[in-house]
């Protein structure tokens, strides 16, 4: 019996009206589709002025030095894994976002903001590799980050990323864990670990320790066994350590960095350091 070849369903395609080379499958994301309906030219220009308006040395040097050689492309995993599609190279992403914004001095229409947001949020991981491959050492990631901030100020951010950012804004951790939940989880893991290692302790808010461990929020939420494992390691190694539960500042994952929400980024880092200073810790250990 002949096998019928499976016909792949024709996917709807998004072709950018600004850059015809940019052809991608259509995606539905309320964070992009709905938010651009609220944009007005004034809002866009205000956001542009807030991010690119003031001439700074870094933006000036990066935009004026780039000689369009395309050597950064070799660094980008998006470019390499998409058959060397020119629209995935780092310099192309900068061309389609920052150059276009600067060329038009922020006077752009919502359609272009959608395109820019799609490029900088869904096709770049801010991994900094292209900056290391650039012969001039241009900080390409910095520019992409600024464009992300421009989109963030307009609220045009993929829904998933924006929700995570909101979690940080509200609770300073990415999974909406309240302080009582957090303390409860840590004490529960201490209890569980005690059966396996004698006198296991998960010290909380101890002063004068050597090491403070800040977990990722996913650990108390989903990977709870990490906590007693790390506790066992510290205990057996004989480290004087503690975990912090006060001020909600204990999640070491700084996700607002990906949307360049400077205010929340600062709150997180400041909180971690202030807690460490409060308990006079010598070292911070972060999960990564």
């Amino acid at each position: 019996m002949a096998v019928k070849p499976q016909v792949l369903e024709e996917k709807e395609v998004y072709i950018s009206p600004y850059f015809p080379e940019y052809v991608r499958p259509k995606i539905e994301d309320p964070g992009l589709d709905e938010t651009i309906k609220r944009l007005t030219p004034e809002k866009i220009e205000k956001a542009y002025q807030a991010v690119f308006g003031k001439e700074t040395a870094r933006i000036k040097a990066i935009i004026e030095t780039c000689i369009h050689c395309g050597l950064c492309a070799e660094a980008c995993q998006w470019y390499l894994s998409n058959d060397r599609d020119p629209t995935y190279s780092p310099v192309a992403k900068v061309k389609m976002s920052a150059w276009e914004l600067i060329k038009r001095k922020g006077k752009v229409e919502p359609g272009l903001v959608y395109h820019i947001a799609r490029v900088v949020f869904t096709e770049c991981n801010i991994c900094h590799r292209c900056s290391l491959y650039c012969p001039f050492g241009l900080d390409i990631t910095f520019i992409i980050g600024l464009v992300r901030r421009f989109c963030f100020l307009l609220g045009v951010v993929p829904q998933r990323m924006f929700e995570m950012n909101q979690a940080f804004m509200a609770t300073l951790n990415q999974v909406w864990i309240s302080q009582s939940d957090y303390i409860d989880t840590l004490m529960w893991r201490e209890e569980e670990g005690m059966y396996e290692l004698k006198n296991l302790r998960v010290p909380l808010n101890k002063e004068g320790v050597e090491v403070i461990w800040y977990p990722l929020a996913a650990e108390p939420k989903a990977g709870v066994y990490h906590i007693d494992r790390i506790a066992k390691i510290f205990q057996v190694a004989g480290v004087n350590w503690a975990m912090v539960t006060i001020n909600d500042a204990w999640d070491s994952s700084n996700m607002p960095m990906f949307t360049r929400d400077f205010f929340t980024m600062q709150r997180i880092v400041k909180g971690l350091y202030e807690n460490a200073a409060k308990f006079r810790a010598k070292k911070l250990v972060l999960t990564e």
Partner: peptide
Amino acid sequence: RLTHMYYFFFTRAWMASQAASWKT
């Protein structure tokens, strides 16, 4: 953009300093 003749030294210095702070 022929200024890359001397801007090279500035942009390179900035990236190198950043990379050094990441120990890479």
